[in-house]
Design a protein around this nucleic acid. Structure first.
Lengths: 207, 207
DNA sequence: TTTATATATTAACATATGTTCAGTTAATGT
DNA sequence: ACATTAACTGAACATATGTTAATATATAAA
């Protein structure tokens, strides 16, 4: 029987939390079982009561990487319906990314993706899928709608989506890198809004 | 005396070449001395005839990271003089990045930067300096000139520089990630040119 | 030819890592 | 009270790593 179901699950969670931190800092290889155990406050052998091996810890964390907070945005506000709002819609999307940039849990997940990007093909697939496929497709739909509504000048919606998204990605990365070394991010505090302004000026049809 | 100066330097170069490849693939930690030695065709202890330790190999490679091929562009074609050309100037800059994206030696250097980005503060500084400071400042000057010349609409040159550069960075990263898994990059073959077109449409003053 | 020296090899070291296993502890169900 | 069992500890293992020491080899200078 469970000696203490509470303790059990909390220890398992502690391991995951510690692993998340350590992998975000040192990568998969750098996050050793001993470091994780030490962070939790147990011996390394105790880890194996909760996970089959180190790989399983990583796999468990990986699941979180598949869940994208921006999926929620596109589900709640599908472009087909809400893109008519034009600039407002783009601003909302940009604000979502801005918020994520300063959310500490999501920052860790993003760091894990980046730290493993070049060495782990699976993570690379997730990265490509999210930042170069999914979001772009959704935004592409949005721009298509805006063209139909006569809000923006006509053109290739796919290109437009990339042009709109790329700076957001660039600013998000910039934010992360500055934060890693505890540098000031004040220069980026309004950049997301400014981007939407600039972009809209370039594509909007001033009627 | 040197038994064979030719052999000496070529072995040393072989070590650097092998290390470059291995670090680009597996990162600094993953590129073990034994792997490097094996790639060169000598025992690991022989490495220490050419380098004090592993750190020195890495340091030697790091020097290359400081040299940016785009510095040459801005030296040969300073914005103060050439930016008057407007769109042509932007296209030249974009083409430089495009060419680098498909240059195998530069790809390796870029991979090393990315693979160590999250774990090595020094590399992070180089990365920030190059992609978020230097290029942006140069481009910022260029846009300032274009505004003075009445080629583009007025606005914040710094913001404009970021808006212009971010997609180029985004496409460059996309190219690298696709190439890593031997995926097709045909969809990106003309994207750099298209970006310049799109951007120019958004800022140009049609006289 | 002899000598000196750069460069290589073989072997070993100290350490870090992932993992296993025998035994201990403490809470739970009977 | 007693047996059961999840969770933990301590110790060890096999392996990988960075590094060093003793030794061999081969080439250039004398």
């Amino acid at each position: 029987m469970d000696r203490d179901k509470q303790t059990t699950s909390s220890t398992k969670q502690k391991i995951l939390d510690a692993a998340l931190d350590l992998i975000a800092s040192f990568g998969y290889k750098g996050a050793s079982v001993r470091k994780i155990a030490k962070a939790v406050g147990i011996r390394e052998s105790a880890i194996y009561n909760h996970f089959k091996n180190k790989e399983e810890i990583f796999a468990s964390i990986m699941q979180n990487l598949f869940v994208s907070p921006l999926d929620e945005f596109f589900t709640k506000k599908p472009p087909q319906i809400y893109a008519k709002r034009g600039k407002i819609y783009l601003l909302e999307f940009a604000m979502n990314i801005k918020i994520l940039s300063f959310d500490s849990r999501h920052e860790k997940l993003f760091r894990i993706i980046l730290v493993e990007l070049m060495q782990n093909e699976k993570i690379r697939q997730i990265f490509l899928q999210k930042f170069f496929d999914e979001y772009i497709k959704h935004l592409s739909n949005a721009f298509f709608v805006m063209m139909q509504e006569g809000l923006i000048r006509s053109g290739d919606p796919l290109l437009m989506a990339q042009e709109f998204f790329a700076p957001l990605f660039y600013f998000r990365l910039h934010t992360l890198l500055l934060r890693m070394d505890d540098k000031s991010t004040t220069s980026l505090s309004t950049i997301f809004e400014k981007h939407v302004e600039f972009f809209w000026e370039g594509v909007a049809i001033s009627s």
